[in-house]
Amino acid sequence: MDGNLITAMLFATVVAGTPLIITALGLLVNEKAGVLNLGSEGMMAIGAVVAFAVTHHSGSPWLGAGAGMLAGVAVSLLFGFLALTLQANQVASGLALAIFGVGLSAFIGKPYESIALKAVPPVRVPFISDIPVIGEALYNQQAMVYLSWALFWGVLWFMYRSRAGLVLRSVGESPASAHSIGFSVIGIRYLAVMFGGAMAGLGGAFVSVFYTPMWVEGLVAGRGWIALALVVFATWRPLRVMVGAYLFGGVMILQLFVQGSGLQIDFPAQFLSSLPYWATIIVLVVISRKLSSIRLNSPASLGKPYRPDA
């Protein structure tokens, strides 16, 4: 295998992992506040179609990405209203949002089907992009890829180094305690849900504008669900989310490369297609298998509605 091929595979892996990282980090913050929003597939789909439409009309992918985020926030507020204000069951509301979002995106997207956008050119980071093999793969990427890395550091810092992050986590662990010392549990949860929605919208925008510059019904193709699973299997740890996302992307790209290389292998193609799911689940379960660590990191009040006593 020559260097160019490794570069091409690494490059494709990073791109394939990026929408998962963006969406999963949003969900992580969301869930750390104790709110389980299963609607990520729907939020991604809405984000994707709105971003596509805005990019198509304005010609600016960044305006599109922003619009995708806003659209994600808007649908997440719908969920917030049901699950936080009306205290409806979070699982049911989230599932409803997922189905609703996918359907609505198909409806909004009808006139945009089969229109192609111009591909967004990559941004080359000077000097480090000249490193052989990895330079071209990691530092000649879409700006959104760098943004996903910044997001990772941001989330890490926010969750474990900032006071606001501490408050957010306390709301997810013991909303009653947080409430008793004067924090607005519902308000904080609303913010967390909105952040989750914004990131899912951005993840969707990445798929429709930067990754596959086209819109077709079903474009998100289950990435929202994978992001949800990643968060759980990574036991709510940002670094593991990132590892899991790249692992998933990497195995998916690897199996395509193996198929395309003409190597004589005797596996059913169906098995190869399911490999990314297998590999990601197995690896994440293995690295997160310590029960004490799962208990430590999973938000104690995840999915439980909180009704503040007056």
């Binding site: 798929v207 086209m214 079903g218 474009l219 790209i253 395509l256 395309g260």
Partner: peptide, 8 residues
């Protein structure tokens, strides 16, 4: 599956 077709 346009995403996968494109990746392929």
């Amino acid at each position: 599956d346009p995403g996968k077709e494109r990746e392929a």
